[in-house]
Amino acid sequence: MKRIFFVILGFISLGFGIAGTVLPVLPGGPFYLFAAYCFTKSSERLDNWFKSTKIYDKYVVGFREKRGMTRKEKIRINIIADFFILFSVFYVDILIVRIILIVLMLYKHYYFIKKIKTIPPEENSA
């Protein structure tokens, strides 16, 4: 029963990851990482299959080995997130919610700049 649960979660997460790769609104990377975790917990066959895909090589291995992002990836994610946060700030009429959203946006920038390692572009394209 536990294995079936992880298989289902893995494929759902993989679907969200693929959607996140195509749609600029959704980040795909975290979903691919979670899918890898779920497939590892579910079965060796699914784990081996996922590890042999280009998705795994591009998104999961890159993150696991380098533990960082290129400047271009950081900027793209921040611009998209800022757009939706600012849209929410203008849409919501409650002052405390606006303040919380702005604080979260500022913290997001701090986190991306100070906590996530910036990888030079030539290192990322292996």
Rank of each mutant, 00 (worst) to 15 (best):
L104N: 13
Y37D: 04
L104H: 10
V97P: 01
V92G: 01
M105N: 13
I113A: 12
F84R: 03
N124V: 08
F31S: 11
F83H: 04
R98A: 04
Y59K: 07
S125W: 07
E123F: 08
I18D: 10
F83M: 13
I116M: 03
E122W: 04
S13H: 06
T40M: 11
R3V: 01
K58S: 04
G20C: 10
I119M: 02
R76N: 04
F112K: 10
G20M: 06
A126V: 08
I94Y: 06
F112W: 10
P24S: 12
A81K: 08
T53K: 01
P121V: 03
G10W: 06
V92Q: 13
L106H: 12
I85E: 03
Y56D: 03
I119D: 07
F11L: 10
P30H: 02
T53Q: 06
N48T: 12
R45K: 15
L106Y: 03
G15P: 12
G15K: 02
K58W: 02
S125I: 14
G29L: 15
V25I: 15
P121G: 01
I100C: 11
A36N: 12
V89F: 02
N124L: 13
K54Q: 05
Y111M: 05
R45G: 06
Y59S: 06
R64S: 12
S43M: 05
S13N: 13
Y59P: 07
L46H: 12
F39R: 04
L9Q: 01
S125D: 14
K72V: 09
Y91H: 09
I85F: 10
V60Q: 09
V25A: 15
K66Q: 14
G62A: 03
T53V: 10
F50E: 11
F83L: 15
T21P: 00
L101F: 10
Y56H: 13
G10V: 01
P24I: 07
D93W: 07
V22N: 00
L101D: 11
G10E: 05
F5Q: 11
L101N: 08
R3W: 00
I77S: 15
F39C: 02
P120G: 00
Y107P: 00
D82P: 00
S43K: 09
Y111H: 13
S13C: 11
K54T: 09
F16H: 00
P120H: 02
L46I: 08
I96T: 09
